[in-house]
Design a protein around this nucleic acid. Structure first.
Lengths: 332, 332
DNA sequence: CACGATCGCTTATACGTATAAGCGCTTGAT
DNA sequence: ATCAAGCGCTTATACGTATAAGCGATCGTG
């Protein structure tokens, strides 16, 4: 900061005084309220004064008065935001801003259940978008009574509590498994990450693999080279592995190569996410890519309609965010 | 959401009525105000009523009343949050929450200069932490007059406007260059990314390289395989490249290998960030790792002291967040 | 037993905004 | 000339909270 005199921020009353009008007029002008009739001359005077004073409306006062914060809250720790979601998040933020909302990401990991919901509710968000498995009946009820108008879940399937933006993880596994089978693999396995927070997705993807290869094995793996090394050195490996995502795929591939195995000749590997890096490593990684299905602007419109009550949210409802597609390269 | 009756959220007045006390008493009890004397019996009654009604204090009303939002704003698009910063962000959020603050990440890309500052100022944040090169004298002034008590910059060096948490990018380049020279490289180059937002850091790192190797070449590169391919096919290459970070290093290394060149025999490569992936590729990547220097709790304490005025911020001041260290593997 | 001190609470107020309601003035129709 | 209708503004109020100030009852002290 620059100086030590913490002046009070200018208010609409200050602007009114500077422009020689009442505070109400300032509010009418700056909000372009269509019900108000103010001459063009006065409008100019108000706008000039506001600009001159550097007036910025106080969001908390406005929220208190209107009962609507316009905040769309995504309680999601930064660490859990994947590559694709990152772009979607930025785009969605831009689209929401155009419609008068503020998309806010509020990372927290330690809070659980109702305690977490309380932290969210304090901001009086208009909407909360959160991983569906972090919601309970009690926390949804708390949000609802504290004025949150929209709660949207993120997850792998429908929830009895809220509508859910789904990503069908089973399909991802099934796509990978089908390719491995078509390539001639006879023994297929799926990696399930041990990391908390994504283990559930790992299980869903495994389920998809088993839709194609009923006996597919499950490999639980933590994201570190040592454990991957033990896996590779253990022998008795399948000849086709769906590795959950590209990062795990590279981890496994690296460990296999260290153990003297060839990819894809000895073991074929399929990843997911289509990171740019996946196309750079040797052999180039076959992967499942996610194409954005819902445009950010569509999502923003939907949220806006839900908040304004023009559309009724249905618990149990489901809409797709991404559609998976197989990219065949050399690792499988 | 669940139902269609948008009940009004319970207020402290509702709690007061339910507990048979005044609203003021509710506030005293729930905030554990040390100046207030309330019997233990009454305290219990108030707490019970609050719990029963699912009372959550309205953050905007509290902000309006106290003049302090407790919001620490990081206007940083999700795409720009790197791996290391991601963990730091989560940790810092936890530490700040313990001290009564709310760390909020507010991604926006389209807004510039004063317009951006206006968007930030509307939330009446207690503190704003933002890339220093996005600040102007006007935007800092706007924040200050709108009540933001602390503005901290992020960047590569001191700013005349605000104190800056620095990462000395020159040192990173210097570390990499020294290693390349010690290995016997005679012609050294540094990659400068073309991506907006990180190009400045690229130049700083190049400067560090030139502190060691005055004549070091500059390679401007966009993050895509085609351009890297043209670079590799162009011939007349240096025998040592500092590739800005691990991702660019992998990009360049992949392109060189495609062109039939050997790493490190023909061209040695150093990256930066020490991504796990850097240790998985062949050859394993030599890289510059960043160790967290300031503990998240120290940062939180510092921010708290600045907000409370117990410590005076000095424009031009600088404190280090990370310290770089070379990790030698096989690519150089 | 009188009286100040302390206890345990209540009453009143301000924060900055949006908006309903009102009010004087001009204008056009009659 | 009279009056309703509109115009261009102002006045007044409420949102939910924190906190200063006040006030009756009880207590300790002399």
């Amino acid at each position: 900061m620059t100086e030590d005199t913490p002046r009070r921020p200018p208010t609409s009353v200050d602007v009114a005084r500077a422009a020689g009008v009442s505070q109400a007029t300032v509010s009418y002008v700056l909000n372009d309220n269509p019900n108000a009739r103010v001459s063009e001359l006065t409008r100019q005077r108000v706008r000039d004064a506001a600009a001159r004073l550097g007036y910025v409306p106080d969001a908390s006062a406005r929220t208190l008065r209107t009962g609507r914060s316009g905040i769309v809250l995504i309680p999601l720790s930064a660490a859990r935001v994947g590559g694709l979601a990152r772009d979607l998040l930025d785009d969605l933020g831009d689209e929401l801003r155009l419609r008068g909302y503020t998309l806010v990401q509020y990372g927290e990991r330690r809070l659980k259940g109702v305690a977490a919901a309380k932290a969210w509710a304090g901001l009086r968000p208009s909407a909360v978008i959160v991983e569906a498995d972090r919601l309970t009946a009690a926390s949804v009820e708390l949000l609802r009574t504290s004025g949150t108008q929209v709660v949207i879940g993120l997850g792998g399937g429908p929830s009895p509590l809220v509508p859910v933006a789904v990503m069908d993880h089973a399909i991802i596994g099934a796509l990978a498994a089908r390719h491995l089978v078509e390539r001639g693999c006879t023994r297929v396995a799926a990696v399930v990450p041990r990391e908390q927070g994504i283990d559930a997705m790992g299980v869903s993807r495994l389920r998809g693999v088993r839709q194609i290869v009923p006996g597919a094995e499950r490999i639980d793996l933590a994201f570190n080279p040592e454990e991957a090394g033990r896996l590779a050195a253990g022998g008795d490996l399948p000849d086709g592995i769906f590795a959950y995502n590209d990062e795990y795929a590279l981890l496994v591939m690296s460990a296999l190569q260290d153990a003297g195995l060839r990819v894809p000749e000895d073991v074929a590997i399929v990843g997911a996410d289509d990171l740019l890096l996946a196309s750079l490593v040797r052999p180039r990684l076959t992967t499942v890519r996610f194409d954005t299905l819902s445009l950010p602007s569509d999502l923003a419109v939907m949220i806006d309609e839900l908040v304004r009550g023009e559309r009724q949210p249905k618990p149990g409802a489901v809409f797709e965010l991404f559609r998976p597609r197989l990219i065949v390269r050399s690792s499988a």
